[in-house]
Design a protein around this nucleic acid. Structure first.
Lengths: 156, 156
DNA sequence: GTTTATATTTGCATTTTGCAACTATTTTTA
DNA sequence: TAAAAATAGTTGCAAAATGCAAATATAAAC
């Protein structure tokens, strides 16, 4: 199991670097890694609240608050107060935000093409399926043990 | 291909959170994420130089220099000047450093057990093999295109 | 033997971070 | 229903992390 840990560790670190390089190559210093995570997550959820995103990203709410404000100031993210509960704010992407994210997507897609292009189609399928398995198992592990504290807490 | 990107993005983010939680649960605020990366990488390479580690981690050398100094001050990392070239410093783990890293390993292993325990042995094997494929492809992609700048730069 | 290149460190200014405390709103409860 | 407790979000502040430019020390090149 230790080698798995090593593989995971190395892979995620390298993927992170890839990601970071895409962030600044595509949008000229405009978007930090954390910010791209936020944009990504806002798009993925349907108009999530501040809390929701902060929690999903494992980011302190206060830090998140500032980041969100920054993204709003740059016109990449919109915020509106919930009608049901005026304490909560829903986040959304502006057109510009969507555009920036699509640029990052483009860069990432190109890099991933280089990576996956080195695999056979069988290997590619295996890898894709594995990622799905990993994500599911991670979610299950974090939900299934929600009552026993101290265990996995990484998603949702 | 876009869904792959999404899977990768989400997985690496979550794995990062898992990792972070292990860092501070195990060693009481002592070790930051970046520092655990450094310890991990120093162990993995055989007495690497400062440059080597900094580059592998995609960290600015100056930032790295300070982090390394911090780890040395805490007695987790040792540094010795190379005999061949007195400009370079080789890094190594102290016994304490090794111990801290092993503690993190232990936490991670337990969490990963929870995750992988939810898979069949066939699934597990598939996942492990996939991670190997991914890492190899990533290295190849970053080396194979070393001459064409602007492409993947994440490893070694 | 002087110039150039390399490995590492420091100065400094900027940014990021997280805790504690605050505001505004909702929910609980007595 | 009025007061207390809980929740979502924001700000103050101090600590940490970051990165560029410049410095040091050593090695390689010419």
């Amino acid at each position: 199991m230790e080698s798995v840990r090593e593989q995971l560790q190395i892979f995620t670190r390298r993927f992170g670097l890839l990601n970071a390089s895409c962030c600044d190559e595509c949008c000229g210093e405009q978007v930090s890694m954390a910010q791209s995570y936020i944009l990504f997550e806002v798009r993925r959820s349907e108009s999530p609240s501040m809390q929701q995103v902060a929690e999903e990203l494992g980011m302190d709410v206060t830090t998140f608050s500032r980041q969100a404000k920054g993204l709003e100031a740059r016109g990449l993210v919109s915020r509106r107060v919930s009608a049901d509960d005026r304490r909560v704010m829903f986040l959304g992407l502006t057109d510009d935000g969507r555009k920036v994210l699509e640029k990052i997507d483009g860069y990432m897609a190109a890099r991933l093409e280089e990576v996956f292009g080195r695999m056979s189609s069988f290997e590619r399928e295996t890898v894709v399926r594995s990622l799905g398995l990993l994500n599911e198992a991670l979610i299950e592990a974090s939900q299934g043990t929600a009552n026993q504290k101290g265990t996995i807490a990484c998603c949702k």
